[in-house]
Design a protein around this nucleic acid. Structure first.
Lengths: 198, 198
DNA sequence: GCTTCGATGTATCGAGCCGATACATCCCGA
DNA sequence: TCGGGATGTATCGGCTCGATACATCGAAGC
């Protein structure tokens, strides 16, 4: 069952989140998105425009009418803005802390909108991502141990580099999680911190 | 024009390369591939089986007949092996040093089979990947400088982490390139090394 | 003044790939 | 003996990309 909405809709979240700041048209939207996500993802028009159309028919975004004087040629820019339903949907998506938030493709997008996410959800997403990566680390290390003997130096070097990259991301997540915990314990200092693991 | 064969066919290369070592059946093939590529990619059956079928009809691989005694039930494993055409094709792909070799999705696969790649091609792929990453680094840094003022701490942290990861990969590539150059100058010591850039 | 060129802008198409799923067999332990 | 987990082949819906097409606008160049 494809669940029809809420799975791999990373783009949907990215668009809704961007439009939450300010109304935008497609071209500018794509530029901002790809600048925002920087090195992690790069959405293309081939997915952006169908996504905009879908959001439009769902009533989550709407075309904003510009001042008539602005229109020079026939039809020019199509500026989209978030509707009330869209804002609600965005809040929903930001509240979800599941695999769809911490997989490779989606984690960056969720993280980019952490400003609008509750502290508790942020923590769960960071921890989810960390255990996802540690899972993968285990799998690769096990596979590596099993086939250690017959591997050429290039394959080995690739494994080593990949392992190191992921270990580095885990350390990054550890720091972020520690920071989050510190911030939340400062908000609620009545909580006993001596019994927390790690 | 989709060029019909030679673009995004990363899987094709991966399958051909794996089958070059030893004949394999689908399930085992996928396991090896995902162990080999470790943290970079993970192919699924949804792409593997159509790929195998396509390679079969192209005559690049063939079903290997097992000893009749091996077949216990009706039809069991389908073991594929590389044909002569397949070996030729693999050599072709390994010789290609273009964007299709150093983009994110394909670089890992190409690197994993560097053992079968000529030294000159290896160097060009490594350098191509490096300049690809530096390009991206420039783009993000420029975008970051232009919008520095209005960015929340999470977005900033994401950018910083992304930037650092890519810088790290560039350093890795630098080391690999230096090693390759050293190795190739040892092979041909008549080459003057004082005039090489960097 | 005229033209060319690059940035801006909307939009679609073919094709690759993934996740989920279905289904069958084999073997091992409770 | 029975269930569950590994092995094994296979497909379907749907998302996304890269390439491409087409149109407008301003600036640079001749």
């Amino acid at each position: 069952m494809p669940v029809a909405g809420g799975q791999g809709r990373v783009l949907e979240l990215a668009v809704l989140g961007s439009l939450h700041e300010t109304p935008l048209h497609g071209y500018e939207l794509r530029k901002r998105l790809n600048a925002l996500l920087g090195m992690f993802r790069a959405f293309s028009y081939g997915s952006l425009y169908p996504c905009l159309r879908s959001l439009l028919t769902q009533g989550l975004i709407a075309e904003e009418q510009p001042a008539p004087a602005t229109i020079v040629g026939g039809r020019s820019k199509i500026v989209y803005k978030l509707t009330a339903d869209g804002k609600e949907r965005l809040q929903d998506m930001l509240t979800q802390a599941g695999p769809s938030a911490w997989e490779d493709e989606s984690f960056g997008v969720h993280f980019a909108f952490f400003r609008h996410t509750e502290a508790e959800v942020r923590l769960r997403i960071l921890e989810g991502r960390r255990s996802r990566l540690e899972e993968r680390l285990d799998a690769v290390r096990t596979a590596l141990a099993r086939t250690r003997e017959r591997l050429d130096s290039y394959t080995l070097e690739l494994q080593r580099h990949g392992l190191e990259s992921v270990e580095r991301e885990v350390r990054w997540l550890n720091e972020l999680i520690a920071t989050e915990r510190r911030a939340s314990s400062e908000d609620r200092p009545e909580r006993d911190t001596t019994s927390t693991d790690e």
